[in-house]
Amino acid sequence: MAELPSWRTINHACIVFQPGNASEYLTGDWRSRRPELDKEKCVRCGRCWMYCPEPAILWDEVGGYTFDYRYCKGCGICARECPYDAISMVEECEE
């Protein structure tokens, strides 16, 4: 991580000049449980993709749905909403 600014150099009123720089902040660090997809059960309905409050579920024509673990906070909404129980939440500490 870059050196943090002093009070003298911090942006006036904390104004952010660079659009979309929230993506530099990897919220995946917050996760305690990780979603995992059972590709056998997945019918690619896209419900998990719609419900994810981050854009942390990615779509790929070939590979189907995958998780972007850089941003996934492990909220578990995708697992709860999946009508086919294709997503399970796995404790990160189990590994």
Partner: peptide, 9 residues
């Protein structure tokens, strides 16, 4: 890690 610097300024 930012808030105190913002308030100080």
């Amino acid at each position: 890690d930012y808030f105190s610097e913002i308030k100080k300024r």
